[in-house]
C-alpha cells in the first residue's frame, strides 16, 4: 500500500477506533478525532491524504466538515460513512466531492481496498 496519512472522524469513539484499527493492519498512519472541531484542529497541525468522516455528527455534519477541511487541504480525498444510508444522501455526498460513500458498519476488507486505492491516487497526484 502507498504511504499516506488518514484522518478518521466519528463522534462514536468505538466505531472510529475500530476503523483506525482496521487501517492500522496496513501500516497506514491513522489519526482519530472524536468531533469536527478536533478534526479541524488536527488538520491545522498535519496534512492528510484521506479523511473518513461520519456523516451525522453534532454541530457540523460530515459534508460540511469535508468542505472545511478542504479549504486548507484541497487535495484531500474523503470517504463519507453513514449508519443511515439513502440514495439522496449518497447523491449529495458524491456530487459535493466525496470520493466514496459507505454504510456503517463498513466491511473491513472493502474499507482497506478503498483507502489503498485513494492513497495510490494521492501518491500519483502532484
Amino acid at each position: 500500500m502507498a504511504d499516506g496519512r488518514v484522518l478518521v472522524v466519528d463522534d462514536e469513539p468505538d466505531h472510529g477506533l475500530t476503523v483506525r484499527a482496521i487501517l492500522a493492519r496496513d501500516a497506514v498512519a491513522v489519526d482519530f478525532a472524536a468531533s469536527p472541531e478536533d478534526a479541524l484542529a488536527q488538520a491545522c497541525q498535519q496534512t492528510y491524504d484521506v479523511a473518513i468522516l461520519d456523516l451525522r455528527m453534532p454541530g457540523r455534519d460530515g459534508l460540511s466538515l469535508m468542505h472545511a477541511l478542504r479549504r486548507g487541504q484541497p487535495s484531500l480525498r474523503v470517504i463519507i460513512l453513514t449508519a443511515y444510508p439513502s440514495p439522496t444522501t449518497c447523491r449529495t455526498a458524491l456530487t459535493e466531492g466525496a470520493s466514496a460513500y459507505l454504510e456503517k458498519p463498513c466491511a473491513p476488507e472493502a474499507l482497506r481496498a478503498m483507502v489503498a486505492s485513494l492513497l495510490a491516487q494521492s501518491s500519483k497526484s502532484p
Binding site: L94, A100, E109, A116, L118
Partner: peptide
C-alpha cells in the same frame, strides 16, 4: 492485498459513475 487492489478501483469507479 492484491485482491483488495482489484476491488478498490471498482468501488471508486462506481462513485465516479454515480
Amino acid at each position: 492485498a492484491r485482491l483488495r487492489g482489484l476491488l478498490g478501483p471498482a468501488m471508486l469507479g462506481l462513485a465516479d459513475l454515480c
